[in-house]
Amino acid sequence: MAGNDYLTQIVTRILIYGILVLSVEMCWGQTGIFTFGQAALFGIGGYVVGLVTTKSTITDIGKLLLVAVIAGALVGLVLGIFLFSGKRVGELYVALVTLAISYICERLANSWTLLGSGNGIPGIPYPTIFGREIGSAMGLFFLTFAVFAIALILCIIIVNSQFGLTMNAVRDDEERAEFFGYSRSVVQIAIFVFSAALAASGGALFAVSEGFVSPSMSGLALSTTTVLWVVLGGRGTFYGPLIALTVLQVVNIQMQNALPSLWPILVGFMLLVTMIFLPKGLTSLPAKIRESRRKRVQI
């Protein structure tokens, strides 16, 4: 199996980014909160784990995930209260504030010596579970898969519950939801905190599976790429963005060797085209094709 270590690591990384995608989908796709800040929370989760494992002897993955989730949830709570507990503020405001937070986190990571500045925090040890070290690519894959599966199931349960309907109501029309008596603030803050915790747990997994954290984890590039996956895949479903993420990651690796300078431009172009012609994402393409065929037949 050792020969497949590289492939295992690619899949593990895709699953970690998948958790990030779930957090954006819950926030934006289901509740209408357009957030550019998931990378900041991803970074917070990662750096917390980095600091804890290098400054103390704690390597138990349960404890590490807990610490990361709490840190993420706290930040999410503070931000959420700031953004959503007053008057309605609108998508653009939220987008800008979360974008700024991502930027601030990246700058902080780059300049604060405690966080390793430009170097990040290297040498993060393997995680342990019940005292046994998870030291192989396969082991890390199973760990990540387990966390991803739990996260996905949680998200599906929430979305299909009564609360999920309230989320969608807030997404579709904030004002009307409020008039109907639903506490818009509570819904938004709750989901924002949940997403923050999710993103932070993804960051924690990144830290232990890669063995290091660096400022680029927290940056605008990752924030934007996560949004890209959701846009390309289609808001409103989980499988759409996850498929987009997988396809892009796999193609990305091939392209990085073939067209390193051209590839990011192509991706940006794809994003532009998708937003203009397929605002519901690529997963709406089959439906659109069927529609246009039906129209042609009618003539």
């Binding site: 020969g3 990384r13 690519a137 984890m217 990085q256 390193p260």
Partner: peptide, 22 residues
């Protein structure tokens, strides 16, 4: 292997060199 002046990319290509290209 191009590490693109980014440690996150560097670890990925390093893993490819060691685990896939051997």
């Amino acid at each position: 292997a191009d590490s693109a002046t980014d440690p996150a990319v560097a670890t990925q290509v390093a893993s490819k060199l060691v685990n896939q290209d051997k």
